[in-house]
Amino acid sequence: MLPTPSVTRRPNLRLNAVSAPTETVFHAVLLLFSLFCVVPFLFVVIISFTSEESIRQIGYSFVPQSWSTQAYAYVFRIGDALWRSYFNSFFITAVGTALSVLMTLLYAYPLFRRDFRQRHFFNFLSFFTMIFGGGLVPTYIICKNVLGLSENYAALIVPMLFSPFNVIIMRTFLQTSVPTELIEAATIDGSGEYHTLFRIVLPVVKPGVATVALLNALAYWNEWFLALLYIRQNTDLIPLQYLLMKMQRNADFIAKNSHLLGAEAANVAVNLPSQSLKMALVVLIVVPIACAYPFFQRFVVAGLTIGSVKG
């Protein structure tokens, strides 16, 4: 998203840029930090392909004694359930992100409009819930018993549709990138409020929308606790993250409590490729969302060029 400035600035590229040595320093700092960020993930990939014997012998290592795809074989053995949960995750993330971005934009826009008198009320309404909440059990009761969020897709989407944090972020984007004159001009042109928002404001604030969409998509993709709470019997609905989290939590529990559970559980524990499995699960979760990341980037970039043409 960032490089775009260079597109618009290209004509006077060197004129309006930091000096070459400074840029080299920037590169060095950013490169170092980026490596620092990505090496742990490579490490995870390596462990996921490490044989369990090697982990038992020498622990986690960048250079294992022997390689194995045992962990992936174990995960893929569950077959259909895995692909169904992949589908569920995509579905929940796509629908959830689309709806929540729309709701966030619709809520943040009036808050940004200084001529909307009730904006303080709506602002506080949202902000207050960032600080105070009813707690887990009461929320569970309301969702399940009052709103019927149980054993259905809605239970995995609705509880995360709205985030006051994202509203504030969106409002801040609107404040920093949409000039008041733009809206005034639109009003004078006789544009309706919804028309102004979607036809005039939205194109300008696309980087912000894409950022909020990214945050939402990540939140939906990583979510598993909702499935734990609300999907007990209709296991066809569980998302990937929960399926994998379940395996990991089972492996952890058995490792910690085998002395309580007798010979049978100890038996199960031995057959779990627990340590490489944990890492294989991480890889399976991270890869799709990491692949989606550049898509958001491009979206932001496109939004910016349109915005700058308009502005």
Binding site: V137, L229, Q248, N250
Partner: peptide
């Protein structure tokens, strides 16, 4: 399951 019983049962 081992991993979720404690949380779901108490909830």
């Amino acid at each position: 399951t081992w991993g979720d019983f404690d949380e779901t049962s108490t909830m």
